[in-house]
């Protein structure tokens, strides 16, 4: 069942991205709590980093589509 393996791979990619983005979001919230006046900078950088982490997961999922 190669399909199942690909599905597991997709799930693993999702877990990785979830951990990464969760850490980024949590740290960003901590940072905002510590320095509420820097919310603009923190938000922009948070989204930038989260987008980069997500990019890795998206590429992994696309690869899952590609591998036949």
């Amino acid at each position: 069942m190669t399909g199942s393996i690909v599905a597991i791979g997709m799930g693993l990619a999702a877990i990785g991205a979830g951990i990464g983005v969760g850490t980024i979001g949590g740290k960003a919230l901590e940072a905002i709590a510590r320095q509420p006046e820097a919310i603009g900078d923190i938000r922009a950088n948070m989204i930038l980093t989260a987008a980069l982490v997500e990019g890795a997961a998206l590429i992994a999922i696309l690869m899952a589509f590609l591998v036949k």
């Binding site: 799930g11 991205a17 969760g22 997961a57 998206l58």
Partner: peptide, 8 residues
């Protein structure tokens, strides 16, 4: 965050 949900 949301995408992970979507993907799952």
């Amino acid at each position: 965050m949301i995408n992970v949900l979507k993907i799952v």
